[in-house]
Design a protein around this nucleic acid. Structure first.
Lengths: 158, 158
DNA sequence: TTACACTATATGCCGTGGCATCTACATCGG
DNA sequence: CCGATGTAGATGCCACGGCATATAGTGTAA
């Protein structure tokens, strides 16, 4: 009687624990490598990469992408700006907000860090989990993410 | 030529992004509900549940479970102790460390919060993703977690 | 144009984690 | 038993996010 069409109810707590623990350890491991080689951490790399790939974004766009608060995002941009990797440019169509852009240094940094990031990620999971099961996981997480984003689940207040 | 035996190389960066974003949003959503109903956040719930299920644990055991530093864990235990949910008991076999135990209040709290946690988690993912794909995801993440833990990947220094 | 409601984001205070450091205790070789 | 080395965890300083609040700037309607 194993494996009904709906699947025997999954241990959601266990699943969640595994999800969080994988995320924590991968994030930590990537932080170590990125800090060592480029002096940034994963969250900074992700922000810079997002800005490279989405020119003209505003603070609110970053916040929505990463599901962190607007305030936190603003401070995070302050720090990137202080390092000279990002600039706030006046937004001609709304003076309340700024358009964010990478500097040349910022661009060089992301491009360099991307190699490190990808390589380390492959070491961490590419070599270990491969093939069909991994595809399923990737696709399922992608769907779950879409649903969570569609329903605005887990967006911080500020 | 789709679907070779190793699977066409997965976009690891995309997978990682989905993993992190799902984790963030689920964690935030659970935080909101737990804070509202029990005045704790997910990390505290997880710590209390671990202590309930692993009596006699030490600070280092918590740190290893959650892949956070010993120092951070010590401070986290301070806060739980200050709330009256946990006590440090002298460890008869090693006076450098303490054995951690839940108080009665702590036990009542975890048991109550567990219902909220499980229920909210089911709302968030149980209803959305069900059946075989989800099983595969759960099992694969569980394996990935085991490998990361076996190799001590992503353990903070302090 | 003036008032009012709304929106984008900046800022302050707090909780929490990383990392470095310090201390007490444990352990091992002699 | 003694000194050297190792280990558990406590603590200080910093980075960073949540949340509440403050400040501009925008849009709308009278």
């Amino acid at each position: 009687m194993a494996s009904t069409s709906a699947g025997d109810a999954i241990d959601l707590s266990g699943f969640f624990a595994d999800l969080v623990r994988c995320e924590t350890r991968l994030y930590n491991a990537l932080n170590d490598r990125l800090r060592e080689r480029h002096g940034i951490v994963t969250s900074q790399f992700e922000a810079l990469r997002y800005l490279r790939d989405h020119p003209g974004s505003r603070v609110a766009d970053l916040a929505a992408e990463f599901a962190i608060g607007i305030g936190a995002t603003s401070k995070s941009v302050d720090r990137l700006e202080k390092q000279g990797w990002v600039v706030r440019q006046p937004n001609p169509s709304d003076r309340r907000s700024s358009l964010l852009a990478l500097t040349n240094d910022g661009l060089k940094l992301v491009d360099a860090a991307e190699g490190t990031f990808t390589e380390r990620l492959a070491e961490l999971i590419g070599d270990t989990l491969d093939g069909p099961p991994m595809s399923t996981v990737a696709q399922t997480l992608s769907e779950l993410r879409s649903v969570l984003e569609r329903d605005q689940i887990g967006m911080p207040t500020g």
